[in-house]
Simulated scan of single mutants.
Amino acid sequence: MWSHKAARRKASPRELGKRALDIAISIPAILVLAPILMAVWVAIRLDSPGPAIFRQRRIGRYEKPFDCFKFRTLCHNADDTVHRNAIRRAFAKQLLSNDPDAPYKLTDDPRVTRVGRWLRRASLDELPQLFNVLRGEMSIVGPRPAIPYELEYFRDWHHRRHIVKPGITGLCQVRGRGRLCPEAMLEMDVEYAMNWTLWTDLKLIALTFPVVLRGHGAR
């Protein structure tokens, strides 16, 4: 059985380079995007009761849990049963919507607020994760951070995705987003974790911008 604990080792030069890249991108991005962050914060607070920032326990590198920051897109204290059931169905390869761009996403989730729906389409709900990057819990590029209850559906080799930090963008975001079933996404995550380079990261960052602007698969 493969164990992520066996993969722990001292940071290599390329990992130090990746960390330097994360800092070099996240700090200027936070400063430049500060007006947008503030505007989104105000819009969320005016739209529905509850905090603007949503903290959710996620799985980080070496499967160490951390608090992932997002702009809140759901009603405050929304029940996660809907999402748990959606995850179960998606791993069984059952379609969750009729949208060809997002068949494995809940496009009609009743818990999503008015502002939240717009934030998801524009991918703005992920912006607070720049602070997770700055804190060293995430990277700009990497597998999306898993929710703890998703791990019960992982095969043994899927855990190899956790030898790298989770990221804001990655292979799945540029190769299909919501069009991909969980199995395909995990395969890409492992592919990235086992083969990443700084050049790969730079290419994925560049490819993310047109994907986000098109909005395909983001719901």
Rank of each mutant, 00 (worst) to 15 (best):
F66I: 01
D156R: 09
A52L: 01
R58I: 06
W157R: 13
V164E: 05
P182G: 04
N98E: 15
P35M: 08
G178C: 04
C68V: 05
F69N: 14
A52C: 00
Q94P: 02
L186Y: 14
R14P: 09
G215W: 11
D101L: 07
R8Y: 05
P210L: 12
K5E: 15
Q129R: 12
A184G: 06
L127Q: 12
L46T: 03
W157D: 15
I147V: 09
F131I: 13
G50K: 00
S139Y: 10
P182F: 01
D67R: 11
S26P: 01
C68S: 11
T200W: 06
L171E: 09
S139L: 07
A11R: 14
M185I: 12
D201R: 08
R117L: 09
R58E: 04
R177N: 01
K18Y: 00
R45K: 13
M138R: 05
A102V: 05
N195C: 10
P143W: 05
P13S: 02
T73R: 02
H76F: 15
M1I: 07
V32D: 13
W199I: 12
L127S: 06
W196Q: 06
W196A: 04
A218D: 09
R55K: 12
Y192W: 08
E191D: 13
A29V: 04
K10S: 12
P210A: 00
L204K: 03
I23C: 02
P51W: 10
T200N: 13
L134A: 11
L207Y: 13
A92W: 06
I147T: 03
N132G: 09
W196I: 00
R61K: 15
P210D: 05
C181S: 15
A78N: 11
G142Q: 02
W2F: 15
A34N: 10
V212R: 04
R55V: 05
L213H: 08
T208S: 13
R84F: 09
N132Y: 06
N77G: 03
F71V: 07
G176A: 08
R45Q: 01
P100D: 06
R135Y: 14
D47V: 06
T169E: 07
A90D: 10
G176W: 11
Y62M: 13
N77I: 00
V141E: 10
S97P: 03
L213A: 13
A78V: 04
L151T: 11
C68Q: 07
M185T: 11
M188F: 11
W157T: 15
R214G: 03
L207T: 10
I168P: 07
D156P: 07
P166A: 08
L130E: 00
T169I: 04
A184V: 13
L31I: 12
D79M: 06
R161F: 14
P110C: 01
Q173E: 11
P51M: 03
K18F: 00
D80F: 14
E15L: 08
P148M: 14
A29L: 01
K18H: 01
A184L: 05
A122P: 07
L119T: 02
H83I: 13
V190H: 06
P35D: 12
E15Y: 02
T169A: 03
C172Y: 03
T81R: 15
V112I: 15
L16G: 10
